[in-house]
Design a protein around this nucleic acid. Sequence first.
RNA 1: UAAUACAGCGUG
DNA 2: CACGCTGTATTA
Length: 272
Amino acid sequence: MIRDWKSMQITKEFIELGIANGTLNKAQCKILGLDFPLNENWEELITDKELTLKETNLFLFLRGKLAIKAQEQIIKNYDLVADFHKQKKEVSKKDKPTEAEDKKKILEIYCDGACEGNPGKAGSGLAIYYLNDKPTLLYGQYTQRGTNNTAELNALYKALLIASEYPKSIIRTDSMYSLDCISNWAYGWKKNGWTRKGKEIKNLEIIKISHALYDSIKDKVTIQHIKAHAGFEGNELADRMAGLAIREKNDEYLEYHYDSIDEVLKMKEDIV
RNA sequence: UAAUACAGCGUG
DNA sequence: CACGCTGTATTA
């Protein structure tokens, strides 16, 4: 499509890709070197024009953005991303690649469960780090009657679900129980037809599906145990999210939008 | 039955 | 820091 990566002869078809509601916006006109609003013969004026890669990209990103503010934001973001790529390129040129950089590409998930009474109202929370210091926070899987352990198992299952979509990930939980269930004991139980010495195994449903999922992706997922309340940021955040799930009673997982991590950590026992 | 481990909570 | 409960598994 784009033969030359540095510049491109613009065509009528290309311009049409950028048109929304029958017109181009101000920023798009500026890129093409046209007046805004467009005058009658604008199509003739652009036939010979060449655009750089940046200009063609921006032209398309700007499609349909009427507000000047939105246009400015798009241009700003583009520069930001371009800058980021440039920096990254320079870094990987100097340092010999891999190791440190590969580590940053690993998906990192902290998961935690909580309950109000045991058994009682239960919920789960996750903090997901990927190429970023600011984790994505999820809270959900509220159940009216759960245990500390089902809440932890639920959180771990969600973490596995997410991990299954990435090439490499590490999951951290503070629940030795859930970790052992899914990645250790389950192998033995499975051999025994999901029983242990004739006695019933608790929480079998979640354990079965979690173990099946884990077993299918275990070569690219590591589950690690960490101590609870030991100051691991991700663990603390996941803990707050589990608490939030209980408060909000949402079964489906929702993303928690926030500004600062401190602000999230502070929501300890702010009663509604 | 006992012990251990990791959690989830509560009280002082 | 101390104590108490329940959830779950393991070992003996």
